[in-house]
Amino acid sequence: MIEFSEEAKRRYESILSHYPQKRAALIPVLALAQREFGWISDEVAEYVGTLMGYPPSDVMSVATFYTLLHKKPEGKYHMEVCRNLSCWLMGAYGCVDEIKNRLGIDIGGKTPDGRFSLQLTECLGSCGTAPAMQVGDRYYENLTPAKIGEIIEKLSHD
């Protein structure tokens, strides 16, 4: 059985207090659960559902609508490169190829040590500093293949 940490339980109560109805807290609570458990597994959906009083199928049906809620375990550094127009114009795929080559993974793949995974994403709101990539809660912008090399190098050692 999984369970929120004490800190997460406090966060949970605080999230609930922001809304006039409990249901509105479901998606922020799923985000909290992902932070705690890494991804939204059946077990996590069941836990959140029990906590809030919704069937796990209902919880999962919500989770599957939203791309930031992961339905499989991603790498510690989940690299999401924007493939949309401005990034595409400025060479996003050159950066994607660099990631593929350096890590030996394809789009949707993960390195065997679980450190890196790669995915394409839609416009990140960084079109003026394209190409852009999101890794966890931070953005990397004005990317070049050389910069990708530096980023991977850095993230490999911490």
């Binding site: 922020p28 985000a31 939203y66």
Partner: peptide, 20 residues
Amino acid sequence: LGQGAYICGEETSLIESLEG
């Protein structure tokens, strides 16, 4: 915070999403 869906910028979708 939204959780990744362009459509949630459409106002009634935003409301549905905010409702959970």
